[in-house]
Design a binder for these strands. Structure first.
Length: 478
RNA sequence: GGUGGGUUGGCGGAGAGGUUACGCACCGGAUUGCAAAUCCGUGAAGACCGGUUCGAUUCCGGUACCCACCUCCA
C-alpha cells in the first residue's frame, strides 16, 4: 500500500499518515458560508482536498473514505441579504428569504465546483440542520465548567483549556497583548469566544436554554464533525486563515466536550490565493468569482490545472499566463488521448504510480503534473495513451466513467466545422505549388492564425486545430 | 507587537548533502513553399554574510527584503 505522508500543522512536521481505521478513513473540511457566489479563493481548498480525497480513495478504496464538508448557512451576511430583499418587497417571511438565499447559493456552489471537476463530498451537512447538536454540546461545555452564560450569551472560557493556542503557536497572554479587537465588557477573558448569542425578532433564532438565539460560528464544525465522524477522526482541513481563531476554537470546544478524545489527528491548511501577485480584493479590482472565470471562457479543467500547479502550502498566484500554459498542456494531452486512447474508458485505479507517489508525498501536485507531462511524452512515444488517460482521470481532468471525448468540451463547445476551410486551404496550396504564388495561401493562413487556429500543413495534407484562444467569430467571411 | 511562511536559471516551479528536475520561452538542427505542430540538441540558477563538511542551492546561525494570519475573508 502506498505510504502517504502529510504535513501536520499541529506538529509542524511531515508525518506518516496512519488512519484510526483503514476501513473508514475520515476527513472534515471547513466549507463555505453560503452568502454569495464562490470566488476563486474559495476554489483552492475545494481542489486541494478533492485531490486528497481522490488519493485516499485510491489508496484505501472508494468505499473506505468519508469526506465531510459543511455549509455554513447561519451568518449575518446571509441575514443582511434576506433583510434587504424583504425591504425591497420580496414575498415570504424572513426565514423563507434566508432559506431561499442559502438554497440558491448552494446550487451555485455545486454547479461551480462541479465545473472544476471536484467530486461531491460524502456528506455536506448544513449548520441549520444541527442546531440541536450544537445546543447539546454547548450545554455539555457549561456543565463541565468550560463555558458560562452571561447576558444572553454563552461564552467559552479559554482559561479553562490550558492547550488553547497550541495549534497556531500562540499563547493567550501574547494574543491579548497584541489584540486589536474591542473586548466585550461581559467577557471574563478578552479571548473568550461566543458559543451562543441572542437573536432579536429581526434575526433568525432557535429556542435554547439561554433564550432565543443563534450559534456562534465555531461550534457548528465541532458539532457536525462529532455527529458525522465521531470524537476522533483523521484529517481536518481548511484555509490557513482559519487556523486562528476558527480551528483553535474548534479544538478547544471539541476536546473539552469530549475529554480524552483526539479530535482531528492531522490538521492541514492551504495557503491563500493571489491574483497577478497581489491579494485578491474588491478594492484592487482583481476580485472575481469562479463563475465569472468560467464565463470568460476558461474551462474548469484549466482552473483546476493552474490550482494544482502550486503546492497547497504555498501562496498560489493566479495569472493569465499560467492559465494560457495550462490550456495548451491540456489540449495537447487531450489530443494524445484522442489519437492513442479513443474509446478507452479511463480507470483511475490504474493511474501512473509515479503520480500517486508524488501525491502521497504531502500532496505534491506540482510534481504530479510534471509526471503527468512525462506520461504524455511516453504516450506519444509508445502510441498508447491509456495510462495518460487513467492518470488524468485520477487527477480529475477526465470524468471517472465516460470514455475520452473526441476533443475536450471547451473546444467542442465552440463547435465550428473547420473542414471546409481546411479543404479550401489545401486547394489553394496545391494551386500555389504550381504557380509559385503563395500570396492567397498565406493570406488565408494568417487569417486562421489570427482566429486562434493552429495551421498544420505537411505532405500528408492540411490540418486545422482550434487553439487556446480560438474565436469562431473571426472566421466569418473566410 | 505576536505567530507562521517565503527568497532557485528570462518566467513558472520541484526534488536531493556530491550525479540533467521538469515545463514554458530562447538558441541550433531535422522537417516545411514559408510557417505551425512534432522530433533531436545546446545554454542558463539557487537573496546576502558566516559556520558545519572532503564537498551545500540542499544542514545550522545571522542580515535584508517579501508575504500571510492575529478582523465570522478559503
Amino acid at each position: 500500500m502506498t505510504g502517504i505522508r502529510l504535513y501536520n500543522t499541529r506538529t509542524r512536521t511531515k508525518e506518516d499518515f496512519v488512519p484510526f481505521d483503514a476501513m473508514d478513513v475520515r476527513m472534515y473540511v471547513c466549507g463555505p458560508t453560503v452568502y454569495d457566489r464562490a470566488h476563486l479563493g474559495n476554489a483552492r481548498p475545494v481542489l486541494v482536498f478533492d485531490t486528497l480525497f481522490r488519493l485516499l480513495r485510491h489508496v484505501y478504496g472508494a468505499d473506505h473514505v468519508r469526506y465531510v464538508r459543511n455549509f455554513t448557512d447561519v451568518d449575518d451576511k446571509i441575514n443582511a441579504t434576506a433583510v434587504a430583499r424583504k425591504e425591497a418587497g420580496a414575498e415570504g417571511t424572513l426565514e423563507d428569504l434566508i432559506h431561499q438565499r442559502t438554497e440558491e447559493t448552494i446550487g451555485w456552489y455545486h454547479a461551480d465546483m462541479d465545473a472544476l471537476g471536484a467530486m461531491r463530498p460524502t456528506a455536506e451537512p448544513r449548520a441549520t440542520e444541527y442546531i440541536g447538536a450544537m445546543v447539546a454540546m454547548i450545554q455539555g461545555l457549561i456543565d463541565k465548567g468550560h463555558a458560562y452564560e452571561v447576558s444572553g450569551h454563552v461564552l467559552f472560557d479559554v482559561r479553562s483549556y490550558p492547550e488553547y493556542g497550541r495549534l497556531s503557536g500562540r499563547s493567550v497572554d501574547d494574543m491579548i497583548a497584541g489584540a486589536r479587537v474591542e473586548v466585550a465588557p461581559y467577557k471574563r477573558d478578552p479571548m473568550d469566544f461566543v458559543l451562543w448569542k441572542p437573536s432579536d425578532a429581526s434575526l433568525p433564532g432557535w429556542d435554547s436554554p439561554w433564550g432565543r438565539g443563534r450559534p456562534g460560528w465555531h461550534i457548528e464544525c465541532s458539532a457536525m464533525s462529532f455527529e458525522l465522524l465521531g470524537t476522533s477522526f483523521d484529517i481536518h482541513g481548511g484555509g490557513i486563515d482559519l487556523q486562528f481563531p476558527h480551528h483553535e476554537n474548534e479544538i478547544a470546544q471539541s476536546c473539552c466536550a469530549h475529554p480524552g478524545s483526539d479530535f482531528a489527528r492531522v490538521w492541514m491548511h492551504n495557503e491563500m490565493l493571489l491574483v497577478e501577485g497581489k491579494k485578491m480584493s474588491k478594492s484592487l479590482g482583481n476580485f472575481f468569482t469562479v463563475r465569472e472565470l468560467l464565463e470568460q471562457g476558461y474551462p474548469g479543467e484549466v482552473v483546476r490545472f493552474v490550482m494544482l500547479s502550486t503546492h497547497y502550502r504555498k501562496p498560489m498566484d493566479w495569472t493569465a499566463e499560467k492559465a494560457e500554459q495550462a490550456t495548451l498542456k491540456l489540449l495537447a494531452y487531450s489530443r494524445t488521448c484522442e489519437r492513442f486512447a479513443a474509446g478507452y474508458i479511463p480507470d483511475s485505479s490504474r493511474a501512473s504510480a509515479h503520480v500517486i507517489e508524488a501525491l502521497a508525498d504531502d500532496l505534491n501536485t506540482h510534481l504530479a503534473l510534471a509526471t503527468l507531462d512525462a506520461e504524455h511524452k511516453k504516450a506519444e512515444q509508445m502510441g498508447d495513451a491509456r495510462t495518460l488517460a487513467d492518470t488524468m482521470a485520477l487527477l480529475g481532468f477526465i470524468n471517472f466513467e465516460g470514455p475520452i471525448s473526441p476533443e475536450h468540451e471547451w473546444i467542442e463547445k465552440k463547435g465550428f466545422d473547420l473542414n471546409a476551410l481546411a479543404e479550401k486551404l489545401a486547394a489553394l496550396r496545391a494551386a500555389a505549388m504550381e504557380t509559385k504564388n503563395f500570396a492567397s495561401v498565406d493570406a488565408l493562413k494568417s487569417a486562421l492564425i489570427a482566429a486562434g487556429v493552429e495551421v498544420r500543413m505537411s505532405k500528408a495534407g492540411v490540418e486545422l486545430v482550434p487553439g487556446a484562444g480560438f474565436d469562431a467569430a473571426k472566421l466569418d467571411g473566410l
